[in-house]
């Protein structure tokens, strides 16, 4: 296994109290495999990714438990200097917010080039050539002219592609893409996802794709992990989940998807608000919003139960949920 996250816990200590952002996340991804991480906004997808990358804001963030095994070694036991070597060269991240992750006072060419001067010892001139190549690869028009431009001079979508170029620069073994195509139109999104998939095959990279776009997930993922309130509530191969979700939250998500060929009245939405992470409800965190909740859901935290060999659901009523699909 390329990456295995085991029972990870992350907290944020703020003035208002302790926010339990990640409460026992377990997931894994192999070389050449794509894991899609879905879930409510605020459910801890990005924070988990930041912990894996070793870029969590500490403080206020703190990893309070768990292991992050990368190629068999627990990264949480590494010194910061060893961590830094892994980052960029062996694992890279494509961020959700391109503008704030790019340096506003450096041209994009210099930022891309830096990857090669710092990590690979190339000359400035060779690094510049590499930078143009990468910009071409992610389809920035007129790359050789625009390599001197600053981030604010590019559209939102272009900045995202520059981020992707930066992550791919050193051909890492694992890429974590945090909503890499949220800012892109569908044709460029298709190109970018194709490009990511192509490079993934070529380099046998593992890919963790954090996204809200269930269309993209259906297109590229091998398996899915669904998060709610800092936990994995369901994990399964991609086909299984779309056919019949085994957790009421997943079911609600799938039912909320608007459709291209229909113009319905009102979109289905899961009722209620996501939980306050400083005050997660007892029992199953989803219970106040769950149409299937029973007494036990309000008192006992449901374990991640085995639905079948490669499928898990953290719901006491996963059987009923599976069946409800066919009503």
């Amino acid at each position: 296994m390329l990456l295995e996250v085991r029972d990870l816990h992350v907290e944020f200590r703020t003035r208002d109290g302790v926010a339990k952002a990640v409460n026992g996340v377990t997931y894994s991804v192999d070389a050449g495999e794509t894991l899609a991480v879905l879930g409510e906004s605020g459910s801890g997808k990005s924070v988990t990714a930041q912990a894996v990358m070793g870029i969590l804001d500490t403080p206020p963030g703190k990893i309070t438990g768990g292991e992050i095994l990368f190629q068999g070694k627990d990264l949480l036991t590494f010194k910061e200097e060893e961590r830094r070597k892994v980052r960029g060269a062996q694992m890279a991240m494509i961020f959700q917010d391109a503008l704030s992750s790019l340096n506003p006072v450096l041209s994009v060419g210099d930022q891309l080039g830096e990857m090669f001067t710092v990590h690979r010892g190339l000359s400035r001139k060779d690094a510049r050539t590499k930078a143009v190549e990468l910009m071409d690869r992610v389809r920035i028009p007129a790359a050789s002219q625009r390599v001197r431009d600053y981030p604010h001079q590019f559209s939102g979508g272009m900045r995202q592609r520059i981020m992707i170029a930066m992550a791919l620069a050193l051909e890492p073994a694992l890429i974590i893409a945090d909503e890499p195509t949220t800012a892109l139109d569908v044709t460029v999104q298709a190109q970018v996802m194709d490009l990511l998939a192509e490079l993934q095959r070529e380099l046998n990279m593992g890919l963790i794709l954090i996204t809200h776009d269930l269309g993209v997930v259906a297109d590229v993922a091998d398996k899915i992990a669904v998060m709610y309130a800092g936990r994995i509530v369901e994990s399964a191969p991609v086909h299984d989940i779309y056919k019949a979700p085994a957790h009421p939250y997943t079911k609600g998500l799938l039912e909320s998807i608007p459709r291209l060929d229909q113009k319905g009245r009102e979109l289905y939405a899961i009722k209620g608000l996501p939980p306050n992470l400083m005050n997660i409800p007892p029992g199953c965190a989803f219970n106040p919003r769950c149409p299937m909740a029973q007494d036990i859901c309000r008192t006992d935290v449901p374990p991640l139960a085995e639905v079948d060999e490669d499928r898990r659901s953290a719901c006491y009523f996963w059987r009923e949920t599976l069946d409800a699909r066919n009503d």
Binding site: L38, L214, P258, L267, P274
Partner: peptide
């Protein structure tokens, strides 16, 4: 709504 999960997205659109 680009940054929202589909359920919250549906809430915001509604």
């Amino acid at each position: 709504v680009s940054a929202l999960d589909v359920s919250v997205q549906a809430q915001v659109i509604n």
